[in-house]
Every structure is written in structure tokens, then in C-alpha cells.
Amino acid sequence: MNMSGDIRVKTDRKYRNLYNDLKNFAVGDMHELFFLCSCLGFRAKKKKNLGGNGEDRFWSRTITPEEYACYYAMMLEESNMDLSAIKDDTTIISEMEKYANAGMEILLDDFLSEYCSSGLKLDSSISKELPKALLHFIYEQL
């Protein structure tokens, strides 16, 4: 695995606040939230192009080998085990951005909406137990 570290991973700019807020309240780092969203999108077999709305969110060097391995696995499964699907990390990350974009929509619809005060921003007053709720949400998806 190349595990390229110099790729700027993008997310939809409308989720900028959400990514920042969730990093503060619920997850350890950006790459973990991105991984979660990618997994959600992949499970739902939903992709959503960022189009012109992509905004650099974090460097790919923060992605762990396990996460990278999963991204590769997702690419392989999607391509019916064609190894060429894991040839280029930029392509892999780009595909994962699409999954993560759709995954964030799922997260919002199924879970986060009740924690958002107005628009796409977390209400800090009700987000104290968000780590537990998020973990519980993941557990419920199984």
C-alpha cells in the first residue's frame, strides 16, 4: 500500500462546521470522522460527487494503515476484486470522498439532526454525551 500522505482530503464545504464541531465533541480526529462517513456511504452503496463544493479538510498522512486498508478493500469489492482499483491513492481517496459525502448525509438524517441547533451546526448545550450517542449509533447499524 502506498498510503500516500500528501493528498488533501476534501469534504463538502457545507459540512465545514460539522466536521469542526464533531472533532471537538465526538471524534478523535478529522480522518476518523471521514472514515466513519465513508463506511456509512459504502454500506449504503451511496456516493455523492463533491462537484465544485470540495474543500480541503485534512492531509491524507493522518489516515491510519487500517483505514487505508479498508479504503482499498472497499475499492476492491466495488471493482469486483480488480487489483487495478487500488493502483492510485488519489483515485481511491477521491472515491472515498464521494462515499463520505453521501455518508455524512446519512449521518445527518439518521442521527445528527437532533443535535444541530440551526443549519449544519452542533448545539453544544445538548452535545455533551455525543461520543456515547455516536458510538451507540454505529453499534445500532450492525
Binding site: 465533541f25 459504502f42 454500506r43 491510519t64 483505514e67 479498508c70 454525551e129 461520543p131
Partner: peptide, 19 residues
């Protein structure tokens, strides 16, 4: 809660166990 916060990444792995 602090520990749970650090576990989100690993927990997300469960979503793709099948894959």
C-alpha cells in the same frame, strides 16, 4: 466519554467488517 471519543475510528471498522 473521553475514551469513547477516541474509539469512533476503530468502531467505524465494524461497519465494513463484511467487506
Amino acid at each position: 466519554l473521553a475514551e469513547m471519543k477516541t474509539r469512533t475510528g476503530k468502531a467505524s471498522l465494524m461497519l465494513v467488517f463484511k467487506t
